[in-house]
């Protein structure tokens, strides 16, 4: 963090969960749904930051696979404490993204 004034010039996006089985499932789902991306996990105890460069998609199908049960995409809100990037939620997927690349 040598130059904090420019520290925001990065493109990491993704959800921040406050725990729960949904967070663990989302880590798996993020790996499956974004096969070309490196998914990084930063576990702070009370919250877990899941990140990828520029865009990350998590699908309902992968969440169901990871959880082993039915899952409605908006259930993700129960443990979604914050997010990096803009979001777009449809019944089939949640997408975190930046429009610009810095």
């Amino acid at each position: 963090m040598s130059n904090l004034n420019d520290a925001y010039k990065q493109n990491k996006v993704g959800p921040i969960f406050n725990g729960g089985d949904v967070a663990q499932a989302a880590i798996e789902a993020a790996e499956w749904d974004n096969p070309d991306k490196e998914i990084t996990i930063d576990d702070k105890g009370a919250y877990v930051r899941i990140s990828a460069e520029q865009e990350m998609i998590i699908t309902r199908e992968s969440m169901e696979e990871a959880l082993g049960r039915d899952f409605q995409m908006n259930e993700i809100e129960i443990h979604l404490g914050s997010m990096a990037g803009q979001i777009e939620v449809t019944p089939e997927q949640i997408r975190f993204f930046f429009e610009k690349t810095l």
Binding site: A7, Y8, Q10, G85, Q86, E99, K100, L102
Partner: peptide
């Protein structure tokens, strides 16, 4: 939370 995450969001909008 602010210097990196929030400021980045501002820039994107």
């Amino acid at each position: 939370w602010i210097i990196i995450q929030f400021e980045r969001q501002l820039a994107d909008l």
